[in-house]
Amino acid sequence: MSKKVHVQTIINGEDVEFLCEPRQSLLECLRDVIGMTGTKEGCNDGNCGACTVILEGRTVTSCLVLGVEVDGKELTTIEGIADGEKLHPIQTAFLENAALQCGICTPGFIIATKSLLDHNPDPSEYEIRWWLANNLCRCTGYDKIVRAVQESAKKIKAQAGG
């Protein structure tokens, strides 16, 4: 068994420290070491997007990042999207538009949407579909997810305007 490494990071704005084996992925560290199971595993090889998190402002599939690589870095996971009891407009839009059925891909989609709208607050449908093509959903056929993202953009704009 290999020696564990000390990692210091910021998750959802809070300082977090943990010990992990060098071979453990960030996904494993989040789920099994820290106990944050909101980030989901669908394939463990970077192809489904269920484990998407925002690392230093960029979306990454956390199964393809090693836990030791986030030392000194900042990340956002699904657990950090809502503001206390108040859901983020993206979360509300996903619920109101029935954009989830089984819900296992939903944390990844919400993170990807957050990242999209941070970069591009007014995306076209094509831009939405292009950006979300890293995330697989098998239940919805994406139609209602696209509507939810369009609705999210509107809600965020209205919030900023008001």
Partner: peptide, 13 residues
């Protein structure tokens, strides 16, 4: 819904 958009829902894994 709320548990599923916030990552609280407990799935098999």
């Amino acid at each position: 819904g709320t548990d599923k958009v916030t990552g609280r829902a407990i799935y098999g894994g």
